[in-house]
Design a protein around this nucleic acid. Structure first.
Length: 669
DNA sequence: TCCAGTACTATTTTT
DNA sequence: TAGTACTGGA
């Protein structure tokens, strides 16, 4: 436990009751959690299987697992649970699905699947165009996070429109039920609900989890709070770590007030503040403190650092967004070639994804390698969704959504008309689509050829269900072969190379399935593996790519939890940061926290940029400096002594000379 | 079934 | 404006 400061040490050792650790940015919170796990096992003698640490992202869970692994041997950590909220929820559900209103083999729909389902319902609704699918999805998600079921939503509706939304929510829930499926929100909601009504199930999990640790507690929503409260029990054997100043997900249902609520629910709650920052220079930290002091606080904290003052953070004013991108690019070249900094130490942070475009363009022109986070994830790719749908249908024959996705993929000459009639028939007989395919009653609705094709599809699933269950990886490989999936990809791709790439993704998926089966899931059902794959965002691939020496481009939201020696915080303008809609909705406190998160990502240098005009929807709009810049003391920032235009010319020249230098370096090889 | 032209939409996003 | 999602015609 060496290398911990007194406060951290106190947080690690305190196990007498509920503990809230308010960990400022860069104060070593992950270290506290991992050390605490080691302490609980090593000093307190708590068996690893009784300890559970919960995070929000797979990445955070992976990192925590690695760091615990550095401190304890595999043997000592056997049985320890480190997982995301959603994986924990999934494990609770799958233990006894029948108890929670599901059947064995239930499917898990990801955000995309559930949006597709919502779209489908909207298609049949009147005045469907008044409601956008993502908005409805968001609405349903909020309802679920707040424990509001369709009936309650309907009774609370204040107008017709609300009532229609509630009705669609009811339709959606009915479909999920019929499909024997849950969505991501259900993974939290359902366990929390079940724990309310079924004490014996709760008792089982309380016996299992005797000590609970929660990371990024300020991001919990009501359902997650409830889940934690149930698991922790009245005596509250838990440590939660969070930072109210880094709460930037309220729009997604996060309730930062859960930090305060904890004090009411657990009067004996102990609060420890971690205020020593190990990341940034004093000047950067000073800015962060000054800025965030403009927000109201229940817990007052002030970060300090033993690092030197460092360089004065700069503000660079640019003409427009193109100029802004060029300025940052030449600054980057300067850092790289004049000051010998690796590209990988630099990050460009912005409020909205659309801002990335200009930067990408210019970085490409300047030949600066970059990594853009926030692309389409592996599991959003069509080929992966297809294969996953096959697996889902094998595991859960009632999953109509999966059926519809693959019944004609690759092409089996089963067209929309056939499917419509099948669906109609299945609706009247209240069976799943797959089951309906082979019932005699279908004769009245479909011709012989159509029935034959559907029958062939059913036999295909039957045959492979058995082989995939026995040997997931091998069975899936056979299935992919049998349906001629590689050929189908080739037909549909623009080039052989693209088709190959896609098929390689499928091969990777097969590999993971095999790994999962050999590892933790040896005796588990196919459905369990499929659901786990759905939750696992396989970012390893992305991490590899982000590895090299590249400049990082990402949104402020995506930057939380990361740090970079050199940070460019761009677009420091009114209507961008704070964002326009936040100004209108009067929610600039969260925007201020967003700016705070951005500033506290920087270790050594921090550069703000802003423009004097920006193109919005095709029109040039003059821009105002962000109020957040005005909240910072003038003399704490280097606003540049040159006029913007002079510096522009000069920087461009500087950038170009570096460009030549780089080309020179390359041709020497 | 595919492509081209049209209509739509512009905050943040993980699970 | 510009990038994308969808629709309808060939």
């Amino acid at each position: 436990m060496s290398g911990l400061n007194p406060r951290q040490l106190e947080a690690v050792r305190y196990t007498d009751g509920p503990l809230l650790v308010l960990a400022g940015a860069g104060s070593g919170k992950t270290r506290v959690i991992t050390q605490k796990i080691a302490h609980l096992i090593g000093q307190k003698g708590i068996a690893p299987r009784h300890i559970c640490a919960v995070t929000f992202t797979n990445k955070a869970a992976r990192e925590m697992r690695e760091r615990v692994g550095q401190q304890l041997t595999d043997v000592k950590t056997r049985g320890l649970t480190i997982s995301t909220f959603h994986t924990l929820g999934l494990n609770i559900l799958r233990r006894e699905p029948e108890r929670v209103g599901l059947r064995q083999g239930f499917s898990l729909l990801d955000a995309q699947d559930s949006e597709a389902l919502i779209k489908e319902h909207l298609r049949h609704a009147q005045d469907a165009d008044a409601i956008s699918p993502p908005a409805l999805q968001h609405r349903i998600s909020r309802w679920k996070n707040d424990f509001i079921d369709p009936t309650q939503a309907l009774s609370q509706a204040e107008d017709d429109f609300e009532a229609r939304l509630a009705a669609l929510y009811a339709d959606y829930e009915r479909s999920l039920k019929a499909y024997n499926a849950v969505d991501f929100d259900d993974l939290i909601l359902t366990p929390a609900q079940v724990f309310r009504t079924q004490p014996d199930l709760l008792q089982h999990w309380r016996d299992r989890i005797r000590y609970l640790l929660v990371d990024e507690y300020q991001d919990t929503n009501s359902a997650q709070y409830e889940l934690v409260r149930h698991l922790a029990g009245p005596e509250g054997a838990f440590t939660v770590v969070g930072d109210d100043d880094q709460s930037i997900y309220a729009w997604r249902g996060a309730r930062p007030e859960n930090l305060i609520r904890l004090k009411d629910d657990y009067p004996t709650l102990k609060v420890i503040m971690l205020e020593q920052n190990y990341r940034s220079t004093a000047r950067i930290l000073g800015l962060a403190n000054t800025l965030i002091a403009n927000n109201p606080h229940v817990f007052k904290k002030r970060l300090w650092s033993e690092h030197g003052p460092g360089e004065k953070p700069r503000v660079i004013q640019c003409k427009d967004e193109t100029h802004e991108a060029e300025t940052v690019a030449s600054e980057i070249l300067h850092l790289k070639y004049a000051e010998n900094m690796p590209f990988g130490d630099m990050a460009i942070l912005y409020r909205g994804n659309h801002q990335a475009r200009q930067f990408e363009k210019v970085l490409r022109e300047y030949n600066i390698p970059y990594f853009l986070s926030g692309g389409t994830s592996f599991f959003a790719r069509t080929e992966i969704k297809d294969v996953m749908a096959y697996l889902r249908l094998l595991a859960n024959p009632e999953d109509d959504a999966a059926f519809l996705r693959i019944v004609n993929t690759p092409r089996r000459e089963i067209g929309p008309t056939t499917l419509e009639r099948l669906a109609e028939y299945a609706r009247t007989t209240e069976t799943s689509l797959l089951a309906a395919c082979e019932t005699a009653g279908l004769n009245a609705h479909l011709g012989e050829r159509q029935r034959d094709r559907l029958g062939a599809f059913v036999r295909l699933t039957d045959t492979h269900r058995q082989s995939v269950t026995a040997d997931p990886a091998g069975g899936l490989r056979n299935l992919v072969d049998a349906i001629g999936y590689a050929g189908w990809l080739r037909e549909n791709a623009s080039s052989q190379a693209v088709a190959d790439r896609r098929f390689e993704n499928v091969t990777d998926l097969i590999g993971w399935l095999g790994k999962l089966h050999k590892g933790d899931f040896q005796n588990k059902r196919l459905a369990d593996m499929v659901n786990h794959l759905t939750l696992m965002d396989v970012l390893d691939r992305q991490d590899e790519e982000s590895g090299g020496d590249r400049v990082h481009l990402m949104t402020l939201h995506a930057a939380k939890g990361l740090e970079f020696p050199q940070v460019f915080l761009v677009g420091m303008e009114e209507e961008l940061l704070p964002h326009r809609t936040s100004i209108e909705e009067d929610s600039i406190e969260e925007e201020r926290r967003l700016a705070y998160v951005g500033i506290t990502r920087a270790r050594k240098t921090l550069t703000f940029t802003l423009t004097r005009r920006r193109k919005r929807y095709g029109e040039w709009i003059p821009s105002e400096p962000s109020r957040f810049l005005n909240e910072l003391p003038k003399d704490a920032l280097d606003w540049g002594d040159r006029t913007p235009d002079d510096s522009a010319v000069e920087r461009k020249a500087r950038g170009l000379s570096h460009l030549h230098m780089m080309k020179g370096l390359l041709s020497d090889d």
